[in-house]
Design a binder for these strands. Sequence first.
DNA 1: GAAATGATTTCTACAATGTAGAAACTAGTG
DNA 2: CACTAGTTTCTACATTGTAGAAATCATTTC
Lengths: 116, 116
Amino acid sequence: MGRDGLLGSFEELVLLAVARAGGEGYGMTVRREIEARTGREVTIGAVYATLDRLEAKGLLSSHLTDGDAGRGGRARRIFRIERAGVDALATARETRAGLWEGVDLADLGGRVEGSR
Amino acid sequence: MGRDGLLGSFEELVLLAVARAGGEGYGMTVRREIEARTGREVTIGAVYATLDRLEAKGLLSSHLTDGDAGRGGRARRIFRIERAGVDALATARETRAGLWEGVDLADLGGRVEGSR
DNA sequence: GAAATGATTTCTACAATGTAGAAACTAGTG
DNA sequence: CACTAGTTTCTACATTGTAGAAATCATTTC
């Protein structure tokens, strides 16, 4: 993401998955959401590494649930989206909308065929 | 991008800049387009590295102009978007549309404030 | 009560992408 | 010829993307 507040593509995906879940979720939830929405399999390691990085940037925060882990398992680590995270998503969406404005892929497709 | 045909965020930006230019452009053109549209400064090295990677993936092709380089300067290297590139953009757009569907950031903002 | 099971997080490592900066090339110009 | 302008290439490093296996801990099973 560099100096700017720009999100990488997978970072956006993960942040969006938390947002979709109402602003809160834990690792496995996020993973399932991503797989369900994109049809793409991701490993749990990839998800956590990204969640950690987003937390380090202040876009998410996390805390452990004490006890109510339900049936079996370790305590859950709940991630919550922060204001900065919501803002980052909003910015990403707006910036992209501007970039795509006026782009006509169908038209482009035609030119590609006929060229050279 | 890994095994899948997924674009990184800067890759998408560069590919889109070529698309905006009617499917053809060279390094400096792309750079200016990106700076104009995003307000963000990018170095020319970053642009070329990405153009090369997109070409290696078959999303763009390139050829050198012979001579008509105008006043001063090396021969231009023209990049043209390929069908696979158009498809990659279309896929990126659709996938993202699905991910964002139903997300209400304003609503989320409210929850973030009041939490904990 | 020890071992198996299930749900989840953590750790480690490496590949791919993002980004910067300077060098090199080429054609005009004074 | 030295200089300037427009452009590409090269090199290097930081950040992000991704995988896979190990570690934790509550519950069930024998």
